[in-house]
Computed example of a mutant assay.
Amino acid sequence: MKLSLHGVSVWYSNAVTQLRIAHETGFSGLEILPEHLYRYLDNGGSYAAYRDLMAKYSIEITCINALKRIGRHQPEARAELLREAEKICQAAVELRCPVVQIMALTELDHLPDSERDAILLDNISAIADIGAPLGIKFQIEVVAFTAFNSLQHALDLIKQSGKDNLGVVVDFWHLHAGGATTPAEVARMDKDLIYGVHFCDGRAAKPGEAWDEWVQRNYAPGEGEIDISAWVEAVKATGYDGVWSPELLSPRNWEQDLWDISRHCYEDMNKYIQ
């Protein structure tokens, strides 16, 4: 099992500082956000220098999170999506990172189910083909507030694709808040299709409330409505022994000391997993 600091948990920091924070608070990995990585590169950083820092702090990049809006399908938009996929895959190669996260947002929600699925299948297959020669895998995150929000839906598309470098991330908040997946379904999964776990708390949107992750996820572990222990035990029941990452998407917590945030993430996750 590898514990990997999630870049969202220390949102107000940079890619370099995140390596040091992860190292000094007990983590051996970092799930990095492309916006943090690209900002570093756009302002004088280099992949070589970043690899040196990774070695200095003994931190692996376990995932780049994320390639978003994978449902883009109009010709120009789809071409842009595939260019972004190539760019993020090249970043993964440079950082010796094995996994890139991909996710649809609401760009397809207005379409009939069959049309939406056809587009998603076509796009994730094309993305998988970009990463395959490079040894890159892709973890699909289903998003609670979209029409593509169930674990089984993602697994069905993976099976239909026939690609062996597609899997899922088990994100406690998205699966709980989406309401279409139970811990029991996770417990029955093939562990080889789990590429990562996002450990987090929160709640679903209330009736009449707009979806806003900065509101519904603004909870430290144990403060929200998720039965964290049930989700943890479900993952463990599969035999999964890969990367676990605490995703603390919490504006309230983000205003604390970055090292304290990371330390609490590490301690909270260990309390539930161990």
Rank of each mutant, 00 (worst) to 15 (best):
L166G: 04
A126C: 11
F199D: 05
Q139E: 15
I124R: 03
W173F: 13
V186A: 03
G196H: 02
G131E: 12
N165W: 04
T182H: 07
S150D: 12
A128M: 09
Q152L: 02
A144C: 13
A118M: 10
D156V: 07
Y195N: 04
V143E: 11
I158H: 03
D201W: 04
A177T: 03
D190V: 12
R188Y: 03
L134G: 14
K163D: 08
A128I: 04
M189C: 09
T146K: 02
G135R: 11
V168K: 04
M189T: 05
F199E: 06
G179V: 06
V142I: 09
F148C: 03
A144F: 01
V197N: 02
D129M: 09
H153A: 08
D192N: 15
I127L: 07
N165C: 10
N123G: 12
A118V: 11
I136R: 09
G135N: 13
L175N: 02
S161R: 10
Y195M: 12
V197L: 07
A118T: 11
A118S: 15
T181Y: 00
L166Y: 05
A147Q: 12
A180P: 00
I127E: 05
Q152R: 13
Q152N: 13
V143R: 06
A126K: 14
W173K: 01
T181E: 01
F145C: 14
G167A: 08
I158P: 01
